[in-house]
C-alpha cells in the first residue's frame, strides 16, 4: 500500500509534490455543498442505489470509485437530475444542494443544471463550430450580446486549457478536434454556464495518457473555484486528484474518507480488496 503511494506523486507532472502527499486540508474546514440522505434509485423494478448518504464538500474534488455497475455513475447523475431523462426511473430519499432539496417540486431542473455542470465519459461536442459549442449554454440562458459571448468563450476555453490550441480556429467544426481536445472543449462548454459544481463521469477513460494528464492538471486547477465530483475507474487517478474518495459496491456506499486515509488504511475489507486489486 505504502509503496503505491510513493509512486503516485511522480505521475502528475506540474503539481507541487507537497500538495499531493499531504492529507487534504482538514475536511471540516470546507462547508458541505451537496448532501444526500437515504438515496435509493430504481430502474423500473431494478434497484441500483441503496440508501446512500453522503456529504460532498465545497471546492474540493470528490472521487467516486467502485467496480462497474456499482452505481457510481447513477449516483453522479442524480446530482443534476440527468436520470430524469430516462423513462421508468424512480428515486427515494433526498439530494440537496446548499440545503435545498433538488428533487422538491418547486425546483426548476433547468436552473439546477445551469449550476451543476457535467462532463461525460465520451466527449460529445455538438456538430457545430468550437465557438458555438462553448457559447451554447450562455446563449440558451438568454445571453445575446456578441461581445459578452466572445468573452465567455475565451474565458472558458482558457480555464479548460484549450485556448492556446484553438484560438485561431474558433469557427472550425468541433468534430475536427482530437479526442483529448474534444473532452477539454466539453469541459469548457460546461464551465461557460458558470456553474459551481462540476460532475465528471470518467472524463479521461477514453483518452491517451498525455491527454489524461492534461485533464487531471485541469481538474486540479479547477477545484480552486468549483466543487468537483468525479467518477473514475482508475484508482491511481482517484488518489492523484481527489481530496475525498467514496467507494461504492453493489449500489451501496461502503465507505467515504479523505483520499489518503482511504487508500492507506481502509476501514472495510471490501474496500481493501478493491483497491489492492483483488476484484473489480
Amino acid at each position: 500500500m505504502m509503496s503505491r503511494l510513493k509512486v503516485m506523486p511522480d505521475n502528475p507532472p506540474r503539481r507541487p509534490q507537497a500538495e499531493a502527499l499531504k492529507p487534504p486540508p482538514e475536511t471540516t474546514a470546507a462547508p458541505a455543498k451537496i448532501e444526500t440522505r437515504d438515496l435509493s434509485f430504481f430502474y423500473g423494478e431494478n434497484q441500483v442505489l441503496f440508501d446512500v448518504s453522503m456529504t460532498i464538500r465545497e471546492r474540493a474534488v470528490t472521487a467516486l470509485i467502485g467496480p462497474s455497475g456499482c452505481g457510481k455513475s447513477t449516483f453522479l447523475r442524480t446530482i443534476n437530475r440527468m436520470n430524469d431523462i430516462i423513462e421508468g426511473t424512480r428515486l427515494t430519499g433526498h439530494v440537496s444542494l446548499e440545503g435545498i432539496d433538488i428533487y422538491a417540486k418547486q425546483v426548476d431542473v433547468v436552473a439546477l443544471r445551469n449550476r451543476v455542470g457535467m462532463v461525460f465519459q465520451k466527449s460529445n461536442p455538438f456538430p457545430k463550430s468550437i465557438f458555438e459549442n462553448v457559447a451554447y449554454g450562455p446563449k440558451i440562458a438568454g445571453e445575446r450580446k456578441k461581445k459578452v459571448l466572445a468573452e465567455i468563450v475565451q474565458r472558458s476555453l482558457k480555464r479548460a486549457a484549450l485556448w492556446e490550441e484553438v484560438k485561431d480556429r474558433l469557427n472550425d467544426s468541433a468534430l475536427a478536434l482530437s479526442g483529448g481536445q474534444q473532452q477539454r472543449l466539453c469541459i469548457a462548454r460546461a464551465l461557460a454556464t458558470d456553474p459551481d459544481v462540476l460532475l465528471m463521469d470518467e472524463p479521461a477513460s477514453a483518452l491517451d495518457p498525455a491527454s489524461t494528464a492534461k485533464i487531471e492538471d485541469l481538474i486540479f486547477e479547477l477545484k480552486e473555484n468549483y466543487t468537483i465530483v468525479i467518477v473514475t475507474h482508475n484508482m491511481q487517478q482517484a488518489s492523484r486528484i481527489s481530496d475525498q474518495t467514496a467507494f461504492f459496491y453493489e449500489g451501496r456506499l461502503i465507505e467515504m474518507e479523505p483520499t489518503t486515509a482511504l487508500f492507506t488504511k481502509p476501514r472495510e475489507q471490501r474496500t481493501e480488496d478493491y483497491i489492492t486489486g483483488r476484484f473489480g
Binding site: 444542494l97 446548499e98 440545503g99 435545498i100 433538488i102 417540486k105 418547486q106 425546483v107 426548476d108 436552473a111 439546477l112 449550476r115 458558470d194 459551481d196
Partner: peptide, 17 residues
C-alpha cells in the same frame, strides 16, 4: 449569482409556459 440558492426554485416564467 453564486450561492443564491433560491435561483434554483421555479418561478412562474414565460419560458415555462
Amino acid at each position: 449569482m453564486k450561492g443564491d440558492s433560491h435561483l434554483l426554485l421555479r418561478r412562474f416564467s414565460l419560458s415555462r409556459a
